[in-house]
Design a protein around this nucleic acid. Structure first.
Lengths: 302, 302
DNA sequence: CTTCGGTGATGCCTCGTGAGTATCAATTTT
DNA sequence: AAAATTGATACTCACGAGGCATCACCGAAG
């Protein structure tokens, strides 16, 4: 069934009415609106007919608002002001000067590239609000596919279908040990030296590909690792290592500056490699222009 | 200088846009709006031109909102809903079914006729809000002249130019005495019996005419009264009398029910007479219809 | 009392533009 | 490959907003 066009008046009527209500004078209002007085009179009459209530009393010498007119004037004013602001707001939004961008990130991102990006971005686009959210790679990939976030800083496993990515960091992992650990004396370590060490890792579901590659590296080195804890978010792993519960893998960049009570040692030979990328939906039909602004800072010439 | 007509689009555009944003389908939206599809396409294109931002992406097979379109949809929805409600509200207001009425009253009115009027009025017009305010006669007359109140219950002095009034009460005053006062023994009193009694009156400025008529009545009885206190609002006078500070004039109606600790005695012979009227501006050009509703209850067939 | 100036409403005409019909172009479905 | 679906375009028509001239009414000034 047809949804009837529900307004028998137009914005024009409201603008005309506002001017007459301001001036209480048809001729002056008509002049201010750059129309002839008869046209104005007729539009007001139409509006009164459409609303079913008289808005003015016209005794030839004086125009006054009726009760209904006063009420309408109060309602119309904020509506017209609001609508007048719309085009500018939309244009700013379309040009990526304003808006919001949902960004997810992993602990590694926050420990390395993200702070600098955020500082630069807020300087360049102070009117865009970021909604930042730490979450693991697997969650980010699902959120990107579902359109819940605009972009994410994560650790790509294999390929990322439908996503465009740009690599921000690629480093061979080292090992983070308690400072008083026996192995902390060696300047560098190999995986097979670490057979007896309990490990603090992240839950496998958070990035199964990387997790499995870590286990495969152990396997190639002839070692079966003992997993002591699986912890998230990432920052907590450092606390557990400091507490002596085990060791964990870490990128050199992430270990700078080195927290108290722990020691970082590079790995010789084969070792897991961490990649940090920024990813966003490729070929999105209606990208938030604000996202383009963010990518211009976070993934330039991408 | 002419104030340019500031909108290059109309409500029609917004209604059309809302429907397309809902359905994301030009043909279905056109059908719902009871217009042909090409007309709808052109209106949307005009709106996009006017706003300076694309609102939809039309790849032949799928229509989607752009970022600007999403933002506009959020803004437009409440505006259209608000405007759709306006005609009904204005009609109700014009028909006196809704609105507000500023009413002032004196203590005598509240002690006699007003509670019944309010009860009946709220039953008949539950959607009209009254703004009630106790104030003395002189203040009410000024407020009526200034248009600050719609009507008042007051005590007319002489004539009330420009006002229409209707008498609600006219009574010869009696005297309110402390219950333990010597004169309380007599069933009725004359003014000259009361020569020694200190009086609790109201400030003369609040109703000079009545005040002077009281003094004139004393003078005719050969008595020069002693004014102990001038107090307002009226209800406080009863407390002062009970406290033994003096006597006061009071209408019989006002003395029912009689408060604790005081005694009411009628006056024989000449005595001040109180009149209570309801008054409102005569020949007002734009009366609040809600006032007419109130008068229909408070001053019927007036 | 008459005249004049100012005001909003009315009649008539013109022209812009919104809407309908037919059709096209592009893409998906069969 | 053909058919169906969908939004845009071309063309025409008709409604109505706006302009001009004028009226009707009222107050002020003489």
């Amino acid at each position: 069934m047809p949804r009837e066009y529900q307004f028998s008046y137009e914005l024009r009527h409201l603008v005309y009415f506002r001017e007459v209500a301001r001036t209480l004078h048809f001729r002056k209002a008509a002049e201010a609106l750059a129309v002839a007085q008869p046209a104005l009179s007729r539009q007001i009459a139409q509006l009164e007919l459409a609303l079913g209530a008289a808005l003015f009393t016209r005794s030839r010498r004086k125009v006054e608002l009726t009760a209904a007119g006063r009420a309408l004037a109060e309602r119309v004013e904020p509506i017209l002001r609001g609508l007048a602001a719309v085009p500018g707001e939309l244009r700013a939004l379309a040009e990526g000067e304003t808006g919001r961008v949902q960004v997810s990130f992993t602990g590694l991102a926050m420990a390395t590239v993200l702070p600098g990006i955020l500082r630069e971005f807020h300087r360049a686009y102070p009117r865009i609000r970021l909604e930042l959210n730490e979450s693991p790679t697997s969650t980010q990939l699902a959120a990107l596919a579902a359109g819940e976030i605009a972009c994410g800083f994560f650790h790509p496993d294999t390929t990322t279908p439908g996503l465009k990515t740009r690599e921000l960091l690629r480093e061979k992992n080292g090992v983070l040990l308690p400072a008083d650990h026996a192995l902390a004396a060696s300047p560098s370590l190999r995986l097979r030296d670490l057979a007896a060490v309990p490990w603090v890792l992240f839950p496998r579901t958070h990035n199964p590909g990387f997790y499995d590659r870590v286990l495969a590296a152990f396997s190639r080195a002839g070692v079966t690792p003992r997993i002591a804890e699986e912890v998230w978010p990432r920052a907590n792993a450092v606390g557990l290592v400091r507490a002596g519960l085990g060791a964990t893998f870490m990128c050199p960049s992430e270990a700078r500056p080195l927290p108290e009570g722990v020691t970082f040692r590079p790995l010789e030979g084969p070792a897991p490699e961490s990649r940090l990328v920024i990813g966003w939906r490729m070929a999105e039909m209606n990208p938030e222009p604000a996202l383009a602004s963010f990518l211009a800072v976070a993934a330039p010439e991408g």
